[in-house]
Deep mutational scan, measured.
Amino acid sequence: NKEKKVFISLVGSRGLGCSISSGPIQKPGIFISHVKPGSLSAEVGLEIGDQIVEVNGVDFSNLDHKEAVNVLKSSRSLTISIVAAAGRE
């Protein structure tokens, strides 16, 4: 599966507009579980089932849900590497 990078700058009070969840035991990782229509996440093409592999240089493969949320909230400017639809297989 091809990795792609998206860049998101949080402007004003707009949030990311997506929710994440941890994958099942047999498929660990952090996946996008919800994308709000019209949100920044939707605008850059994030979709439900995409796996987040890295954010701002932080490897997401071994993070738990709480740590992942903290990384996503730690910066107003995010570089997110995803594997599209990895969670839909």
Rank of each mutant, 00 (worst) to 15 (best):
residue 50 D to R: 01
residue 14 R to Q: 14
residue 56 N to Y: 12
residue 52 I to S: 01
residue 47 E to D: 07
residue 85 A to K: 12
residue 4 K to L: 04
residue 34 H to F: 10
residue 29 G to K: 02
residue 32 I to F: 01
residue 33 S to W: 02
residue 39 S to E: 03
residue 18 C to L: 15
residue 34 H to A: 12
residue 79 T to F: 07
residue 83 V to S: 09
residue 15 G to A: 10
residue 52 I to R: 00
residue 79 T to S: 14
residue 66 K to P: 07
residue 89 E to V: 12
residue 22 S to T: 13
residue 3 E to A: 10
residue 7 F to C: 15
residue 24 P to D: 11
residue 54 E to T: 10
residue 29 G to W: 00
residue 81 S to N: 13
residue 84 A to R: 15
residue 30 I to L: 06
residue 48 I to K: 12
residue 43 E to C: 06
residue 13 S to D: 14
residue 28 P to W: 03
residue 42 A to L: 01
residue 60 F to Q: 02
residue 24 P to E: 08
residue 13 S to V: 06
residue 77 S to A: 12
residue 80 I to M: 15
residue 51 Q to F: 02
residue 24 P to I: 06
residue 24 P to F: 07
residue 25 I to Y: 11
residue 46 L to V: 04
residue 43 E to H: 07
residue 13 S to I: 05
residue 33 S to K: 09
residue 88 R to A: 14
residue 33 S to P: 02
residue 22 S to G: 08
residue 13 S to N: 15
residue 22 S to K: 11
residue 3 E to L: 11
residue 87 G to D: 15
residue 89 E to I: 09
residue 41 S to M: 05
residue 83 V to I: 14
residue 41 S to H: 02
residue 30 I to D: 00
residue 38 G to V: 03
residue 36 K to L: 13
residue 31 F to S: 02
residue 71 V to I: 10
residue 13 S to E: 14
residue 40 L to T: 09
residue 41 S to Y: 01
residue 89 E to Q: 11
residue 19 S to E: 14
residue 86 A to R: 13
residue 77 S to D: 14
residue 82 I to Q: 04
residue 87 G to S: 13
residue 88 R to G: 12
residue 54 E to I: 02
residue 34 H to K: 10
residue 27 K to N: 13
residue 76 R to N: 12
residue 87 G to R: 10
residue 43 E to M: 07
residue 3 E to N: 14
residue 78 L to N: 04
residue 22 S to W: 05
residue 57 G to C: 08
residue 45 G to C: 04
residue 30 I to Q: 04
residue 74 S to F: 01
residue 88 R to I: 11
residue 39 S to A: 03
residue 55 V to D: 02
residue 84 A to D: 07
residue 4 K to G: 04
residue 42 A to F: 06
residue 4 K to A: 03
residue 80 I to N: 03
residue 60 F to D: 00
residue 82 I to A: 15
residue 15 G to Q: 14
residue 33 S to M: 05
residue 36 K to N: 11
residue 19 S to M: 09
residue 27 K to C: 10
residue 54 E to S: 15
residue 59 D to F: 04
residue 16 L to C: 03
residue 18 C to R: 01
residue 85 A to N: 13
residue 30 I to C: 07
residue 43 E to Y: 05
residue 44 V to I: 10
residue 43 E to W: 05
residue 70 N to S: 15
residue 51 Q to R: 12
residue 55 V to F: 01
residue 49 G to N: 06
residue 18 C to E: 01
residue 45 G to F: 00
residue 17 G to A: 00
residue 60 F to C: 06
residue 62 N to Q: 14
residue 40 L to I: 14
residue 41 S to F: 05
residue 34 H to T: 08
residue 78 L to E: 04
residue 76 R to A: 10
residue 32 I to L: 05
residue 31 F to L: 02
residue 62 N to M: 13
residue 42 A to S: 10
residue 54 E to M: 12
residue 81 S to P: 03
residue 2 K to Y: 06
residue 89 E to L: 10
residue 29 G to Q: 00
residue 77 S to R: 12
residue 51 Q to Y: 04
residue 56 N to S: 07
residue 34 H to G: 12
residue 24 P to L: 07
residue 82 I to E: 05
residue 54 E to K: 14
residue 28 P to V: 03
residue 28 P to I: 01
residue 53 V to L: 06
residue 13 S to W: 04
residue 25 I to H: 14
residue 39 S to G: 08
residue 78 L to R: 03
residue 18 C to A: 08
residue 20 I to F: 07
residue 82 I to F: 13
residue 44 V to Q: 14
residue 22 S to R: 11
residue 19 S to K: 12
residue 52 I to M: 07
residue 58 V to L: 09
residue 20 I to D: 04
residue 63 L to S: 07
residue 88 R to V: 13
residue 52 I to F: 02
residue 23 G to L: 05
residue 5 K to S: 08
residue 18 C to T: 04
residue 59 D to L: 06
residue 78 L to I: 06
residue 62 N to V: 10
residue 71 V to F: 05
residue 11 V to I: 11
residue 84 A to K: 14
residue 11 V to G: 09
residue 16 L to E: 03
residue 39 S to T: 06
residue 76 R to K: 14
residue 84 A to F: 04
residue 82 I to V: 15
residue 25 I to T: 15
residue 66 K to A: 14
residue 81 S to W: 07
residue 14 R to T: 11
residue 4 K to S: 07
residue 6 V to I: 11
residue 20 I to N: 00
residue 17 G to F: 04
residue 87 G to A: 13
residue 27 K to F: 10
residue 19 S to R: 12
residue 5 K to P: 00
residue 62 N to P: 05
residue 4 K to V: 04
residue 14 R to M: 08
residue 2 K to M: 12
residue 85 A to Q: 13
residue 5 K to E: 06
residue 58 V to A: 14
residue 21 S to K: 13
residue 30 I to S: 02
residue 15 G to M: 08
residue 83 V to H: 11
residue 27 K to L: 06
residue 89 E to P: 14
residue 81 S to C: 10
residue 72 L to S: 15
residue 41 S to G: 13
residue 23 G to M: 06
residue 5 K to H: 05
residue 2 K to G: 01
residue 61 S to P: 08
residue 28 P to Q: 09
residue 75 S to F: 15
